[in-house]
Nucleic acid binder design. Structure first.
Lengths: 165, 165
DNA sequence: CCCATTTATTTCAAGCTTAAAACTTTTTTG
DNA sequence: CAAAAAAGTTTTAAGCTTGAAATAAATGGG
C-alpha cells in the first residue's frame, strides 16, 4: 500500500496542481503590483515608460553594448519590439546604434553619456521604490525567496529544454 | 557601537537594496518565462491570447459575473483595456454583457455556455503546462514559496496604502 | 564558386495596454 | 430640488507587443 495522502506532500513529492496554480497566480499578482508601482514612478518622476527603463537598464549592465538580438533575448521580448523601443530611445538621445564592421547584418546598441546620466537618476529612484515595496520582508525571508525563485528559474529552464525536443 | 555588518542581516533586519533588486529581477524573469510558455500554448492549441484567457478565467471564478470595473480591478489592468477585450470576446460568443437594471451606468459580464465550455478545455491544458513548468519544485518548496509570496503581497499592499497618504 | 541554409534584423498587421478626457448615470449636499 | 460631486464605463491617442513575413548578409557543403 502507498503512503497516506496527508504524508505524501511532506515526503518531497510533487505539489498538487491546485497548489501550483495558486503559486502561479500569486507570483503573477506580485509581479503586476510591483510593475504598476515602478511604471507609476517612472511616468510621474521621469516622464518615461517601463519598457524604455528596461532597455536602459540592460545597456547599463553591459557597458560594451549589446546587439539587437542579445537585447531582445535579455529582455525576453520579441525582435520587432526591441526595434521600436531602440528607435524611440535613439530619438531621445539616450542610446546610439553602431553597425558592426565585421558582421554587417548586426547592430550594436550602447548608452550615450546622456543616456547613462539619465539612467543613473532613474536607477536611484527605482532602488528606493523597490526597497519600499519589499519593506515587509526581512533579510532571511528575502534570501529564502531569492533561493526558491532560483530553483523555480532552473525548473522553468529545464521544462523549456524538454519542450524543445 | 552597533552590530558588525556581517551579523545584521541574520538578525532579521531589512535586506540591502542589492538583494531586493536581485529579488525583483528574478521574480520578473520567472513571471515572464511562465507567461511566455502559457501564451505559446494558448496560441498553438487554442488560437487565443493570454489576456483573453485571463478574462475567461476571472469570469469562470465568479459565476454570477462581474461588472467591468470589478473585472478591471481583478485583472489589474485599466478600464479601457477591459472594454476592448470584452468586445472581442463578445464577438467570439464566449461572453455576454448584461446592462444592470438597478444601476444603468453599470454592465455585468458573464461567460456564455460556449465560453464556459471553451474555458474548461483551456484550463485543463493550462494546468498541465503549469505542472510541467513547476516540476522542479517539490511540495515543501512550493508551500514555502507560496507563503513567502503571501508575505510579499502583504508588503506590497502595505506600501501602496502608505503611498496613498 | 554557388546555391541553400542559417543568422540578424526590420517591417507589418493585429491586438494589447495605458493614462487622460469625455460621457452617462447616480449620489450627495447646499 | 437643483447643482455639484462621485462612480461606472467608453473613447482616444500614443505607445507596447507579438508572430509572421520580408530583407539582407554570412556560412557551408557540393
Amino acid at each position: 500500500m502507498s503512503e497516506p495522502a496527508y504524508l505524501i506532500e511532506k515526503l518531497g513529492g510533487a505539489p498538487d496542481s491546485k497548489t501550483n496554480l495558486r503559486l502561479w497566480l500569486r507570483l503573477l499578482t506580485c509581479a503586476h503590483h510591483i510593475e504598476a508601482g515602478v511604471r507609476d514612478g517612472l511616468r510621474r518622476e521621469f516622464d518615461t515608460t517601463l519598457p524604455r527603463f528596461d532597455v536602459l537598464a540592460a545597456l547599463d549592465r553591459f557597458p560594451d553594448g549589446l546587439t539587437m538580438g542579445e537585447l531582445s533575448r535579455w529582455l525576453l521580448v520579441s525582435n520587432g519590439n526591441v526595434t521600436g523601443l531602440v528607435t524611440r530611445l535613439e530619438t531621445e538621445g539616450f542610446i546610439e546604434k553602431v553597425r558592426s564592421p565585421e558582421d554587417r547584418r548586426s547592430t550594436r546598441v550602447k548608452l550615450t553619456k546622456a543616456g547613462a546620466g539619465a539612467f543613473a537618476g532613474m536607477a536611484k529612484a527605482h532602488e528606493g521604490w523597490i526597497d519600499q515595496l519589499f519593506a515587509g520582508l526581512d533579510a532571511e525571508q528575502a534570501d529564502q525567496l531569492l533561493e526558491l525563485l532560483g530553483t523555480l528559474k532552473d525548473s522553468l529552464a529545464a521544462a523549456k529544454r524538454q519542450d524543445a525536443q
